[in-house]
Design a protein around this nucleic acid. Structure first.
Lengths: 94, 94
DNA sequence: TGCTTATATACGGCAATGCCGTATAAGAAA
DNA sequence: TTTCTTATACGGCATTGCCGTATATAAGCA
């Protein structure tokens, strides 16, 4: 398991990676998907199941290979600020 | 303005159009975006602003030219079952 | 009846993503 | 060291995201 220090270090590295991201053109700010998920303390598989994201797509996002589109980005941000609230609404959907 | 009858007829046509949709292969069931929006009684522009969808993308979805990906589809379904609840969470995000 | 405004439909088009599958790494526990 | 579990890395093709703009459709008004 990682030490608290290692986790913080990893978090900083993620942040720096994002800061270095392109963004030089028309695209809007993206979302730190990994950070959102880790805040929920769920594994990728569990997070994917909980919020109905395809796991392969979630992987791409976390690894920075792809960026979520506006709709998915919005949902991710919603999970970030109110994970339980989102879960409650999803329960009504499913 | 459309009569109530015309609206229902249009709705049925939409539903039939969706029923005829491909779906013959691996893709999952899609969302009737137009129906979701009309249930909120918002114009495309207003709906896009409210839920932060790019208007061009919303158009594509309603016209059946494109299908929302899993994340956007989930958010749309959430709006369908609890538009105000979604708005409340988005308020915390923005 | 004709003009104007608001709203929605239709597409062209390219960069970029969605999503699947699988091979490889890394940490934890046995 | 072997085994599980979780996550990283990519190949790859069909499909979408998102922008822009031209056209159609009511409505409302002069």
């Amino acid at each position: 398991m990682k030490s608290a220090f290692d986790k913080i270090a990893a978090g900083l590295e993620d942040a720096i990676a994002y800061a270095k991201g392109d963004d030089s053109r028309g695209r809007v700010a993206t979302v730190d998907v990994k950070a959102v998920r880790e805040a929920t303390a769920l594994t990728q598989a569990a997070f994917a199941r909980t919020y109905h994201f395809p796991i392969g797509t979630l992987r791409d996002w976390e690894q920075g290979r792809r960026n979520p589109d506006a709709g998915s980005a919005m949902l991710l941000k919603m999970i970030q600020v109110d994970p339980k609230g989102v879960e409650r609404i999803i329960a009504k959907v499913a």
